[in-house]
Design a binder for these strands. Sequence first.
DNA 1: CACCATGTTCCTTG
DNA 2: CCAAGGAACATGGT
Length: 286
Amino acid sequence: MPELPEVEVLVRHLDPLLRGKRIRGVTVGRAKIVRPETSATLADRLVGATFGATTRRAKYLLFDLRHGTRSEPFSVVGHLGMTGRMFLQPASAPLPKHTAVSIDLGEQRFVFEDQRCFGRFNLDRAPLAELGPEPLSDDFTADAFSEALGRSSQAVKVKLLDQSLVAGIGNIYASEALFLAGISPLRRARSLGREEIGRLRDRVREVLADAIRFGGSVPLDWSGAGKGHALFYYGAKETGPATRSAEERFAVYGRDGEPCTRCSGEVVRCVQAGRSTFHCPRCQLA
DNA sequence: CACCATGTTCCTTG
DNA sequence: CCAAGGAACATGGT
């Protein structure tokens, strides 16, 4: 579940649940997730600490912690990778199969499960320094965006995934924003005019904000063990219309072969930098 | 067996 | 040094 909107909704969910809770124990099920820390080092640092705010930077989660009010605050940096999930469950519940980190909070436990182990949960803040502006912040201006796209000969869709350019867009919302802006993902970044860049910036913000609104409006089954890892699809108990199919919310992503909702032309899939891209060649002229 | 998957990092090539 | 392309990472689902 991992682009900016999903992380934002997760953070809003976790913050009030974790705040003020004291860590009694830490168990690492997948050592790779906590590197470069070792399991023992991480546990040493965390046990006894109390959660403060849980916030987000791009797709990273930041868990503020401190050992009493007189000691220096620090934070754990989390990332969901492709398949990470985080939730609280009763301490008596069985641990999920792919539990990467489990934190004992007393009555409850905080679980980070990650099937593919692309996620992380450690004290290394270095990756944060490489990130570009938050797309929903005032820093993400058309000027800044234009500057970032620069003279690059790379396709604009590939540039949208570059976290040093703008931080938080992933493979789904990149295709979606380009469709809404009516810009082909195949266009070279440097070929975009000022007007197009401004439009793309606005649609990026819109698609991310809408997704956050959507995720915040739907009752999510955070601890559900079920159903895959689709965005905003935590468990499948309540298969109501709102959560039934996350993909149904997308205009082009995953819709290759289907008619474009705007022009009825056919949505096509192509591969750019090893990732799938979806677009409507009629609405998004190359 | 083949190909696909919401992400990031490392290595090679130019 | 930089830009760009590709493989690797680990584990599935179809």
